[in-house]
């Protein structure tokens, strides 16, 4: 913290600097002398060429990022709309070590938790990852007959389970999601993390764990379905292209979770005739979903 203090002392007299925010592990975790320190400096609105510097202070590397105030606020307030994004996790643990602007305290206070309205959307995104790892694990154990590699995918799924669990409680999560979830609910994490980390699982155990993923998602299906049902509530057929465009995502990531909801009978999986290019004569069928209600 000495390095941070001496950095703050230096910029205190700079009227362009509005706040110094310590992010990353220093703000909440144990650090050692090899750690660098992530710092965001909020500056007066202005156009600058370089937004990132590596500063040396008291022998410690400070990774400093500059953020003009208005842009920073807009970024922070919108971050939640993408559902507990990395930005929120990154700044939720941040520490405001110096500021000339009191309103920033409120800002940081607000992002310490995920808003109730943002929880379902965030959970939906993590569930999409979780279902992706589930599918991979199932493939490697059943089709490829390689339980060890399937176990590796289960471990990857563990982080998604941990993040979903935290998200459902409104807690922003980052790289330490598994540790946090372990302290909160070790029994939940056992089959996904503690067991696969401690020994080699049999094929039956792997299939049972996969089944537990299904159970876990089914238990929380009311939260997961909420944004989907809301989006499909106009009862128009929505193709994957429209879904991706609406949710600013790409590829088939969300189709896993839409398929899951369709399997559970909440929505209907259908298809729509499209042309690949505006001039194409041939038609193909694109996956689409419909809420029948």
């Amino acid at each position: 913290m000495k390095a941070v203090d001496s950095f703050v002392e230096k910029v205190r007299n700079d009227i362009n600097v509005i706040a110094v925010v310590v992010c990353g592990s220093l703000s909440y975790d144990v650090v050692w002398d090899k750690s660098d320190i992530d710092i965001t400096v909020i500056i007066r609105d202005q156009k600058i060429d370089n937004y990132a510097y590596c500063i040396i202070e008291d022998g410690i590397t400070l990774s400093v990022e500059l953020a003009p105030r208005s842009k920073f606020k807009r970024y922070l307030e919108s971050s939640g709309s993408l559902g507990g994004s990395f930005t929120q996790a990154y700044f939720s643990n941040a520490q405001l070590v110096y500021t000339t602007d009191d309103s920033l305290y409120e800002c940081f206070e607000e992002i310490k938790s995920i808003g109730i309205g943002d929880i379902p959307l965030t959970a939906l995104r993590i569930a999409a990852d979780l279902l992706h790892f589930r599918a991979k694990s199932l493939k490697w154990v059943k089709a490829r007959k390689d339980p060890l590699y399937a176990q590796y995918f289960l471990l990857m799924a563990a982080e998604s389970v941990a993040n979903t669990e935290l998200c459902l409680q409104g807690i922003p999560f980052s790289r330490n999601g598994i540790q946090k979830a372990l302290t909160q609910n070790p029994e939940l994490m056992r089959p996904f993390y503690l067991d696969p980390m401690s020994r080699r699982l049999s094929e039956e155990e792997i299939l049972a764990t996969i089944h537990k993923i299904d159970d876990y998602l089914t238990r929380n299906i009311d939260v997961l379905k909420q944004p989907v049902v809301e989006y499909l509530s106009d009862r128009d057929l929505k193709t994957m292209t429209m879904i991706n465009k609406h949710s600013h995502s790409a590829g088939d990531a969300l189709s896993y979770v839409f398929d899951f909801l369709a399997e559970k009978g909440i929505i209907e999986k259908v298809s729509k005739t499209i042309r690949l290019t505006p001039k194409s004569k041939a038609t193909v069928e694109e996956i689409g979903y419909l809420y029948v209600g």
Partner: peptide, 12 residues
Amino acid sequence: KNYMRRTTTAEA
């Protein structure tokens, strides 16, 4: 309306 607001030419 959907077309005007958010869809692409790849729509059916």
